[in-house]
Every structure is written in C-alpha cells, then in structure tokens.
Amino acid sequence: MKVVAFERSVQGTGASRRLRNSGKTPGIIYGSKDPAVVIELDHNALFHALRKEAFHSSILDLEIGGKAQKVLLRDYQMHPFKPLVLHIDFQRVSATEKIHMRIPLHFTHADESTAVKLQGAIISHIANDLEISCLPADLPEFIEVNLANIEVGHSIHAKDVALPKGVSLVLHVEQENPVLVNARIPTVKAADTEEAAPAAAAAPAAGAAAPADAPKEKDKA
C-alpha cells in the first residue's frame, strides 16, 4: 500500500493544532540508522486507510518528496470522541532485519466442523491476532486458522497454527502458547421447577371436595 506524506519544518502544540485545522495529520518516521523525520499527511486519506486491515499489518510504501521508503504503522492516536486522527507513527524497515508484528487471525471452516454441525457447539475466539517474527518480505497480511477439525471441549493454541514459510512466533508467545479459540456446548438454563412446585401444591387438585364449613353455633335458649 502506498502512503504520500510531506516533510514539515514547524513543530510544537500550536503548529500541530493549526495543521489539524487545515485537514492534515502530524506524524513521524523513525528507525534504521537515519534520523527521525516529522511529517504531515492528508487526514481524510489517512482516516480511510486506517479502516483497512492491511494498512495495520503490511509493509507500506511511504513517499516523501518523490522518494519512497518501506515502513510499518507502529502507533496512532485518535480523538476521544471525534473521528479525528491526532498523530501517527511509522517505523522504517530493513529487508535484512526481522520485524515483530501483530498479525490478524482469520478463522475459517467453523461451520464445517462436527462440533458445530452435529453437536451445536459455540466457537469462542479468545484472540484475534498473533505476534510473530519474520523478515519484511515474508510478512503475511493475515494468518488463517482452520477450524474444520475442532472438537467439543478442545482448544486451538498458538503453536497449533500452521504458520507461513519464514514466519515464527515471538519467544514469549512460543513459551506461553496461549489459547486462540475453543469449542464448547452452550449452557442451557433449566426451567425453575423448584419455584413452580410450591405453587402447584397450594392449589386444590381438580375434583377435590371443598373443605366443610365450620359448624354453626347452636341457638341460645
């Protein structure tokens, strides 16, 4: 994906506010051996790009002054309640250095599993992304998790996922091996018969004789 930015010379809170008022978003590029560069980007184009999954997990071609460089989106700040991007950070990448990224998980074929089709299991997604390490050229846009063979009461862990060539789990994920998804039978709430029983006992049975009236007092002499 291509991103067009412009180098900016003025910095500071006031300058950033004026920049946002003019429809631009301040940002920065850092990493590698080159110095950090402060930039500005068109806000509307950036806002729509942030809504795309690939923008968050792909190598981006960032063009400044007609020269492109490979970068990753590392961070961005949104306004607390307005649809406004306040600031964005990009990191330069080198073709020979491994990068750490959180890659989205795409869960597939759940409806084909016996657990769902025949046993009525519910698939619970515990994690929606996975932290991996790879060279920039091997970076996948997403990682597929095939649920066709998942069984009731079983889980799929990080180490169970088939990773693309050149991709590995980062060390702490490899050691912790967290659960990504599981299949379980939903708990059905039984009818509350205990509350209904006393009410049924209190009502007279059908056809039962009504209680006799109390004896009348004898007439006084």
Rank of each mutant, 00 (worst) to 15 (best):
T25F: 00
P26H: 02
G27V: 00
G27Q: 03
I28R: 01
I29G: 00
I29S: 02
I29R: 01
I29E: 00
Y30L: 01
K33W: 06
K33L: 15
D34Y: 08
D34F: 11
D34P: 10
P35C: 07
A36I: 10
A36H: 06
A36K: 10
A36D: 08
V37C: 05
I39N: 04
D42I: 03
D42R: 07
D42Y: 01
N44C: 12
N44P: 12
N44V: 09
N44T: 13
A45Y: 11
A45R: 12
A45Q: 14
L46P: 07
F47W: 12
H48Q: 13
A49W: 00
A49P: 06
A49V: 04
R51K: 15
R51Y: 06
K52G: 11
K52V: 15
K52W: 05
K52N: 14
E53W: 11
E53P: 12
A54W: 10
A54K: 08
F55V: 07
H56R: 04
H56I: 09
H56W: 06
S57W: 02
S57Y: 07
S58W: 10
L60A: 03
L60Y: 01
D61N: 15
L62N: 02
L62A: 03
G66N: 03
G66P: 14
K67D: 12
K67P: 09
Q69F: 06
Q69W: 02
K70I: 12
K70P: 11
K70L: 11
K70S: 14
V71G: 07
V71Y: 00
V71P: 01
V71D: 01
L72D: 04
L72T: 08
L72A: 07
L73F: 05
L73V: 08
R74H: 09
D75V: 00
D75M: 07
Y76I: 08
Y76R: 00
Q77L: 11
Q77H: 10
Q77I: 06
Q77S: 13
M78W: 01
M78V: 11
H79W: 02
K82D: 04
K82P: 07
L84G: 06
L84T: 14
L86N: 06
L86V: 13
H87L: 06
D89I: 07
D89N: 05
F90Y: 05
F90V: 04
F90T: 03
Q91C: 07
R92N: 10
V93N: 04
V93C: 05
S94D: 13
A95W: 04
T96N: 15
T96Q: 14
K98T: 13
K98C: 13
I99C: 06
H100M: 11
M101N: 05
M101T: 14
R102C: 13
R102K: 15
R102D: 15
R102M: 13
R102E: 15
I103A: 04
I103S: 04
I103C: 05
I103T: 05
P104M: 05
L105F: 05
L105G: 03
L105S: 03
H106C: 09
F107G: 07
F107K: 03
F107E: 03
T108A: 07
H109D: 15
H109C: 09
A110D: 11
A110F: 09
A110G: 08
D111P: 04
D111F: 10
T114S: 12
A115I: 10
A115F: 03
V116S: 01
